[in-house]
Design a binder for these strands. Structure first.
Lengths: 154, 154
DNA sequence: CCATATAGTCAAGCATGATTGACTATGCGC
DNA sequence: GCGCATAGTCAATCATGCTTGACTATATGG
């Protein structure tokens, strides 16, 4: 462990960060692949899934979405358009400013991708079964710490 | 919690899987951004970092790399070429089969991206400080369970 | 020794997801 | 009411990271 080269190599090839990246990539691929093999499901792409954590039933503006993801609103626009076409979200005029529209999940639309989401959940349950409820809780908590450490570019 | 719509929305917007994806994306962006702002550092892209977990000092064939990542060897080739140009890895003829070449880290090359890797490590330490050594150990373990659950497409 | 398989290379093309720039429509403040 | 800011749209372009297909060089088995 005192060899700095070995340490570097370990960092490059198997640090916790690398494990995190690897797990996420596998999860992403699997969730999308699962969705892709369901006949009627909309062709959701990674770019759409990035929007999900920022959507809810109360409504968000497209420009806010863009800002949160750190991209331009032009980049968001086609994605939102597709989600609307697929019936996953709907747009309503923002009562506070009629130029703007609020985007929000449509419950009946969400059920269209329910199986894909259910896959996420099933992997989650599988892992939970393997490691136990308590450890899973710790995991979620530490994940929160990672996000907190990374979220605002200090 | 009995409202299935709310459950779906929660799954779409904040399940553990989503948190995992989010943390990984943030980490990836930060590590690459850090590297990008170091003057002499090679312009490593996400595609290269995917190779790292599969590289070491003992040597791997490019085709094995491709197989592990689930892409064609043509996709791997330009990435490897760049890593070699940047001095991060070197190629030696495989003594077992002279058609093949083994790829392996070059210690002095690794130090060129040491600062980027060090950033990974520093975030890791920051998180560890925040949550404690024990919880970090649990985290790593659960991460392993996720990877195990996802690794071989069942 | 020759046929066939295998490791890696080269080239062209494509989907994705971003960018910049120009535009429309609406709202808000003086 | 007018002027300017703002929310969203449209169009063109670009980098990235793949793909398929054709090729070269080396190995191995009959």
């Amino acid at each position: 462990m005192s060899d700095p080269d070995a340490q570097l190599a370990a960092l490059a090839s198997a640090s916790t960060g690398q494990l995190l990246l690897r797990a996420a990539r596998l999860l992403d691929e699997r969730a999308l692949a699962r969705l892709a093999e369901i006949p009627g499901a909309p062709p959701v792409r990674p770019a759409h899934t990035r929007l999900f954590p920022h959507l809810d039933f109360s409504g968000v503006r497209a420009s806010v979405l863009a800002e949160r993801l750190g991209v331009t609103k032009q980049a968001i626009h086609p994605l939102v358009t597709e989600l609307v076409e697929w019936g996953l979200v709907e747009q309503v005029v923002d009562p506070a400013d009629r130029r703007a529209r609020l985007l929000r999940f449509r419950p009946d639309g969400l059920s269209a991708i329910a199986q894909g989401l259910a896959m996420l959940e099933s992997v989650e349950r599988e892992v939970e079964r393997a490691v136990g409820t308590e450890r899973m809780a710790v995991f979620r908590e530490v994940l929160g710490a990672w996000i907190a450490a990374l979220e605002p570019p200090p």
